[in-house]
């Protein structure tokens, strides 16, 4: 069996399992958890496109996630949860995301990586403050956040589950097409050595900007999925801790593997939920972020390719495809 067969087989099994979850485990706890996982998996994969495929590190990627969640939420709230409101919210969120990513790219992508990361962090924090400000209270309900009504056809948990799953599958397929396209290959070249890409006649800045826009769009869709799944949005979606969680998901799953984000999101969100439940009986589990820190160090030290990357490499060695 080749690594490709393994990969296709595992993805097919995962998909089948995901489709069967509502049938096997019922609606409620497991599906609610997985809806969150789907949203964060897409968010983590969008981040992987930046850090793993282009070598660009952003500490404020939550700005796109939060914008998706807030814009869709605002339109849903102000349209009374109509389908038209949802559609308008999606279109406007995607439009805002493109403009925002182009703006950030134009002011920060030409500078050194570390400053780029700092600028994204600053932009993310600006949005965090804006979303919670009293000035925008009529629109965002400030620090109290908004309970978001959904269209009638989206009121059933089962529908929300399958919609989020379907959107995730479509986005994964699009991301896969993108990273395998000639543009995706140039991005991987940029990650390896920008100077070499320049010698081939490619504008590194333009390619990075394209990656940033696509990554931002995917994170925005993830934010929209999140608000649909949670029916609530607050300033927490812009918090820097969200960006750091997603960084952790990407690194644990496997940087530059695309699918690593899926596994990372499942592990981190699953663990967060489980530890929070356990904390009721054993208070020590309330400090689970310390465990995440240890896990992060262990992965970076012993499995720098993350779980998916390490397994893929082992399979390649086993099948003799890698020297």
């Amino acid at each position: 069996m080749t690594p490709r067969t393994w990969k296709i087989g595992s993805l097919f099994l995962l998909l089948l399992l995901a489709v069967l979850v509502p049938v096997l485990f019922g609606i409620g706890g497991p599906t609610n958890l997985l809806e969150q996982v789907f949203a964060f998996a897409l968010f983590a994969m969008s981040y992987d496109l930046l850090i793993g495929y282009t070598g660009v590190v952003s500490f404020g990627h939550a700005v796109f996630f939060g914008t998706g969640a807030y814009v869709a939420g605002i339109f849903l709230v102000h349209s009374g949860g109509s389908t038209a409101g949802l559609l308008m919210g999606i279109v406007v969120a995607l439009g805002v995301s493109v403009l925002l990513s182009l703006l950030i790219a134009s002011i920060s992508l030409r500078i050194r990586t570390v400053y780029f990361a700092m600028i994204t962090l600053a932009v993310g924090q600006t949005f965090y403050v804006l979303a919670g400000s009293q000035m925008l209270q009529p629109l965002t309900n400030a620090d109290d956040g908004m309970t978001v009504p959904l269209p009638v056809w989206l009121m059933h948990d089962r529908t929300v589950y399958y919609v989020t799953l379907l959107v995730l599958v479509c986005c994964v397929w699009l991301l896969r097409l993108f990273v395998r396209s000639p543009v995706g290959q140039v991005l991987q070249g940029i990650r390896e050595n920008e100077g070499r890409v320049l010698a081939l006649g490619h504008s590194v800045y333009r390619f990075k900007a394209v990656a940033f826009v696509i990554s931002g769009l995917m994170a925005t869709i993830a934010g929209i999925l999140y608000v649909i799944a949670q029916t609530f949005v607050s300033t927490g979606v812009y918090d820097v801790s969200i960006s750091l969680d997603v960084l952790l998901m990407t690194i644990i799953g496997g940087v530059g593997t695309l699918y690593g984000g899926l596994l990372g999101a499942l592990l981190i969100i699953g663990a967060q939920t489980e530890f929070t439940n356990l904390a009721g009986t054993f208070p020590i589990f309330g400090r689970y972020t310390i465990l995440f820190g240890v896990l992060y160090i262990v992965i970076v030290r012993f499995m720098p390719r993350g779980i998916v990357g390490t397994v893929a490499q082992a399979l390649k060695r086993w099948s003799g495809q890698e020297e």
């Binding site: 290959q185 991987q188 070249g189 390896e192 050595n193 070499r196 010698a199 081939l200």
Partner: peptide, 8 residues
């Protein structure tokens, strides 16, 4: 050094 991309 050829300007190759070793991981591709």
């Amino acid at each position: 050094e050829g300007h190759l991309f070793g991981n591709l």
